[in-house]
Simulated assay, not measured.
Amino acid sequence: MTIHMVKLCVGADDVDALADWQARLLKTLPHPVHHTRMAPKRAEEMLDGGSIYWVIKRAIRVRQRIIDIRTVPDDAGRDLCELVFDPVLVRTYAQPKRPFQGWRYLKPGEAPRDLKSGEAAIDLPPSLDAALKNAGVW
């Protein structure tokens, strides 16, 4: 069964900032990566089609497919978890998310839908986005 990960995208004000950060990584690496202290216990399920859903400005706004999870040493020789992503950023409908530390698992049924090809990504405030969805407008 596939499981996803959700994580705050610290330091990014929008999806373009995340794209710029990862473009810089791609100058020296074959794929974008992110390091965490704790390795997911459900790594096999994440590698079975799972994605990382990035929270930017208090809402999930974009995802990337996770293509590998491996252990790498840090500068002090301690083990870190390295998450390796497909470089393609897939915009999603904004889904409000409160701040949290670290990362969390996200069940497929709880993940926001991808925006359709050619569909404009409007960065509405999460409260307005939720109100529009509840009203059946969005």
Rank of each mutant, 00 (worst) to 15 (best):
Y53P: 10
H34V: 09
H35I: 04
L128V: 15
T28W: 02
V33H: 06
G49M: 09
R113A: 15
A23G: 08
K107R: 14
K7C: 14
G136S: 04
P96R: 13
E110C: 10
R104L: 12
L83M: 12
P126Y: 01
P126Q: 04
V62T: 05
L80M: 14
A94L: 11
A17L: 00
K41C: 09
V88S: 08
G50N: 07
G11I: 06
T28Q: 12
G77P: 00
L25R: 15
L132K: 08
A12R: 13
D13N: 15
G109T: 10
S127R: 12
A131N: 00
H4S: 02
R65H: 12
M38C: 09
H35E: 07
I66T: 05
R24T: 12
A111F: 07
D68N: 11
V10D: 09
V137I: 15
Q22M: 13
D74A: 05
I60W: 07
F100S: 05
E45S: 14
I122N: 00
E119T: 08
A23V: 06
I122G: 00
E44T: 12
P96L: 08
Q101E: 11
I66C: 06
L8K: 09
S51A: 11
D86N: 10
V33K: 05
V62C: 08
P32R: 02
V72Q: 01
R78S: 09
V62W: 04
L47S: 05
R24W: 06
Q22P: 02
D114A: 14
P126S: 06
R42C: 09
L8Q: 14
T2W: 01
A135W: 00
M5P: 00
A19L: 10
T92C: 14
G102T: 03
L8D: 07
L132R: 10
K27F: 06
L29F: 03
A76T: 15
G11V: 07
R113F: 11
I66F: 05
P73R: 02
P108W: 02
G77Y: 02
C81R: 05
G118R: 06
D14P: 13
G77M: 01
L83S: 09
S117K: 13
L25N: 11
L128M: 12
S51I: 06
R61E: 10
K107W: 08
R65C: 08
K27D: 15
F85S: 03
E119Y: 11
G102I: 03
W21V: 11
I122A: 01
R91L: 13
K107P: 04
